[in-house]
Amino acid sequence: MIARMPAVGEDEIGEMVPLSLLQAGESGRVGDVVGNVDLVHRLREMGLCDGATVWMIQPGSPCIIGLDGHRLCFRCDDLARVFVQLPAAC
């Protein structure tokens, strides 16, 4: 299970993929959030900030992701795209 993998170290560079490509149970580190400035700031305030570990709970659009002990659901569309770094080992 990818979810059980230890979090990647800061110096390891994994592949950057859109969050929406994660399968249920997969996790990654938030690399970049791009899109509408206000929305991006709001997502970052809610914890989708550089380096935070997120895991996919319910893929799709909208999706549910796990983030520091809570669940966040949001629609990944043109307004905001979240890119995550996959653990380097996989």
Partner: peptide, 11 residues
Amino acid sequence: GAPVFVMEMPA
């Protein structure tokens, strides 16, 4: 356009 949708799922 379609509005933003961000919501916390409470426990």
